[in-house]
Design a binder for these strands. Sequence first.
DNA 1: CTAGTTGCAAAGCATTTGCCTGTGG
DNA 2: CCACAGGCAAATGCTTTGCAACTAG
Lengths: 133, 133
Amino acid sequence: MQRKTKQREHIREALTALGRPLSPTEIFNQAKKRCPSLSLATVYRGINNLLEEGKIVRVSLPGEPDRYETDECAAHHHHHFHCDECRKVFDVAGCAEKLHPHLPEGFSVIRHEIVYYGNCKDCQKSELTRLAR
Amino acid sequence: MQRKTKQREHIREALTALGRPLSPTEIFNQAKKRCPSLSLATVYRGINNLLEEGKIVRVSLPGEPDRYETDECAAHHHHHFHCDECRKVFDVAGCAEKLHPHLPEGFSVIRHEIVYYGNCKDCQKSELTRLAR
DNA sequence: CTAGTTGCAAAGCATTTGCCTGTGG
DNA sequence: CCACAGGCAAATGCTTTGCAACTAG
């Protein structure tokens, strides 16, 4: 069974603190603020422990390194938004989409992933100010 | 400008021969049959050349190494299907989906990607025979 | 106590680069 | 000819592992 250590606490804390899916490096940088001795290898190990326990969930997006979010975030069906500008990833609540894929004969769909790309709130603003110049 | 070499031909040939998005290694293995002296580095360089020329297109799926498909495949809007069993990727023609994401205030969507997961035709069959046993 | 954890450094993998030889045009 | 292309091996970047020291329970 797993022990409760400060390093592991810091990993979960980083995830809840920023409230969006984070990459191992983002977690590392965030958690290092509280625990300077933390090593990146420990973050990776901690991530894998927490994954096995189901306390965090992997968020993979096309062409991006894997990110992770807390089980609370993952409790409801949702998709993700990737900002083309700052490359941060945000949750998109619910799934109002109607899906009717034109599948070839004999294929069956068990689940789906949708990723939206565009500009997040902050980058939207900076985009506007840039255009206004 | 780029030259026409047999190695580069073999890369495109591999893609059209199998008719589905292929990873660099899949391309390498396929092309090596015709051109045993081919090196993996050349496949990577060839892929990047062809990308720049727009002759092939990158297909990234969550948690998967990048794959590539010919520009013909990419000419029409489509999405992808990933078989949970054999891990091959197939094109899904068109996009009959109605998308109405619940975006936070201030976000704007420029494009989207959809990935379907399930069993492809062949693995569907083997799944059925396995269950029948 | 003692098995699970950590930090560090080294090992793995996939992808890219440097360098020198080979070759298409 | 000779600049671009190819093969090989070394370099890179991200993730995992081995190992000895450490610590929660």
